[in-house]
């Protein structure tokens, strides 16, 4: 048995023990999500149009994360609407910044890894760079919108006669907590992801200016910031959408 399959089985057992049926659903959402990423890589390598792949797979990934991951349909519906909306906005932001930074493809540091690979792949790496950036932000956006929707909907359940303004205020205070923890998840996730790169810079005595202009650092730095911007936008948008839907009109 390879380590990977052993870990997979261990995770499945744990999730079943902790969550039962909904644990199984969460497990499936993780597995399907992983398979979707591999499928995207395959499709692009076969030459399928990258924009088309993005348009199909981005909503599909949000659907798997949100609908399979949460067992309250009402929460899922509101979280999905909001996450999709934020993703559309953040995609526009990403396209602008990727165009400005022209940071796509591989860095100068990947010399050893690309030995033996053809470096004339005939694919638009700027477009792939945009897709990678959008994918990296999807998880954080989905998670934050689920947390916001769940919080606001349960508040509404306990106190159904809150006005739109009251819901907005509660949403704002809930948002602060969710923002704080979501920022940490993003930050540490990326610390883990890019640790080797930072050790590389430090070992080879890059100056700060060299680091800030290095293609890989800029790619990774921008991806962190995109995710942060996405999460920040989720908070007001979700509370606004839900408050509009659920809030009682102010009595005159």
């Amino acid at each position: 048995m390879t380590t990977l399959s052993a870990l997979l089985v261990f995770l499945l057992v744990l999730m079943l023990a902790v969550g039962g049926v909904s644990g199984l659903r969460s497990f499936m959402s993780v597995v399907i999500n992983t398979c979707l990423i591999i499928l995207v890589a395959l499709l692009i390598s076969w030459g399928v149009n990258i924009c088309l792949t993005a348009i199909i797979f981005i909503p599909l990934k949000l659907l798997t994360i949100i609908y399979l991951g949460t067992h309250n349909q009402k929460v899922a519906k509101s979280a999905f609407t909001c996450a999709l909306l934020v993703t559309v906005i953040i995609s526009a932001v990403i396209i602008i910044f990727q165009w400005l930074a022209q940071a796509a493809g591989l860095g100068d540091q990947s010399g050893e890894e690309v030995v033996g690979l053809s470096l004339l792949p005939g694919l638009s790496y700027p477009q792939i760079g945009i897709l990678v950036a959008i994918f990296s932000t999807l998880g954080a956006i989905a998670e934050a919108s689920v947390a916001m929707s769940a919080g606001l909907l349960s508040l509404h359940q306990h106190q159904p006669d809150l006005s739109m303004q009251q819901l907005l205020t509660s949403g704002a205070s809930m948002g602060k907590d969710i923002l704080g923890t979501a920022i940490n998840t993003i930050l540490f996730g990326f610390f883990g992801s890019f640790l080797p790169l930072f050790i590389w810079y430090q070992r080879l005595n890059y100056s700060l200016d060299q680091i800030f202009n290095d293609k890989l650092f800029v790619i990774n730095g921008l991806i962190i910031i995109y995710s942060l911007i996405g999460v920040v936008m989720v908070v007001p948008l979700t509370s606004w959408l839900l408050a509009k839907q659920l809030g009682q009109p102010e009595k005159e």
């Binding site: 999730m15 902790v18 969550g19 909904s22 644990g23 659903r25 969460s26 959402s29 993780v30 999500n33 992983t34 990423i37 591999i38 995207v40 890589a41 395959l42 692009i44 390598s45 990934k61 994360i65 949100i66 399979l68 991951g69 949460t70 067992h71 309250n72 929460v75 493809g105 591989l106 990947s110 890894e113 690309v114 690979l117 792949p121 694919l123 790496y125 792939i128 760079g129 897709l131 990678v132 994918f135 990296s136 999807l138 998880g139 954080a140 989905a142 998670e143 689920v146 947390a147 769940a150 998840t185 993003i186 996730g189 990326f190 883990g192 992801s193 990774n220």
Partner: peptide, 27 residues
């Protein structure tokens, strides 16, 4: 139970999306 699924996916996406350019090149 509600939190864990989306949270795991955050990390899956961070760790896997970073490998996408290289994966496509290999394939």
């Amino acid at each position: 139970q509600d939190i864990m699924g989306p949270l795991i996916n955050v990390l899956v996406l961070i760790f896997m999306a970073a490998e996408l350019p290289m994966t496509i090149l290999y394939l």
